[in-house]
Design a protein around this nucleic acid. Structure first.
Ligand SMILES: [Mn+2]
Ligand SMILES: [Mn+2]
Ligand SMILES: [Zn+2]
Ligand SMILES: [Zn+2]
Lengths: 121, 121
DNA sequence: CGCAAAATTGATAATGATTATCATTATCAG
DNA sequence: CTGATAATGATAATCATTATCAATTTTGCG
């Protein structure tokens, strides 16, 4: 299919935190990199399916990406400022396995996210 | 500035779980209700700011709404046929509260979903 | 009741992110 | 080198959401 363009990953690293496809694209343009918006979208999708990056949604619905730690984890996201904490999800993992087994589901995965207002907000 | 059209809330109630603005609109059309898409969007926004409904995002970014008070539950979804089971989330609720408290987050909500292959698939 | 101000409505257009096309270009195996 | 295959990116299409704005309904008061 298609591989991720390494310059996209490098740019996302340099960005530090979360960045949208549009933002990564503009960043690369500003730094004189010659790349197409399509390639940025494709690369981020590829990084996502390879679990190299995480994706979240801004309040306006725009998808934002960030480098992901290697271990499986979940997020505690601030509704106010978007600040994010990576948290451990042992209880969730067990819950997902238990529920799946109870209803005979196989090949099971899950999503879980907590959102609220951080201490600063 | 503008109030929620009560028929929108009534339709969201009847829908049972989550529904997007587009879905609420189509539902009302199918049932012969005369209403504009704009009013549906406006009403859901109003219900949101009045804390009558919660909003979440689908994977594709579409905003979905649900009644705040309705019985809270989670879903076990089949990746093959789309069949869905509503499941208890007690373990999740506790996990969410614990994590939020640990990091000082207030006004906390969460999302959680399990997906896999159902016995038939 | 009249009637004008204010609120609601909804058709329509505009916005903006994301995705689909598809021809061009780069890369690779033999 | 050469044909095949993969990557690229300009462009157009999609689609949810939001902005406009004129028409309609409701409200409040003499
Ligand atoms: Mn997990
Ligand atoms: Mn829950
Ligand atoms: Zn915050
Ligand atoms: Zn199934």
């Amino acid at each position: 299919m298609s591989r991720s363009n390494p310059r996209v990953l490098s740019t996302l690293e340099r960005a530090g935190g979360f960045a949208s496809a549009q933002e990564v694209y503009k960043l690369m343009q500003r730094e004189g990199e010659k790349i197409g918006l399509t390639t940025v979208y494709r690369s981020l999708q590829s990084l996502l399916s390879d679990r190299i990056v995480d994706v979240l949604r801004r309040d306006d619905g725009e998808a934002i990406y960030r480098l992901c730690g290697s271990t499986h984890h979940h997020h505690l996201v601030c509704k106010g400022c978007g600040d994010t904490v990576e948290i451990e999800g042992g209880a969730i993992e067990k819950w997902a396995r238990t529920m799946a087994e109870e209803f005979g589901y196989r090949d099971v995965g899950h999503t879980a996210e907590i959102f609220g207002l951080c201490p600063k907000c």
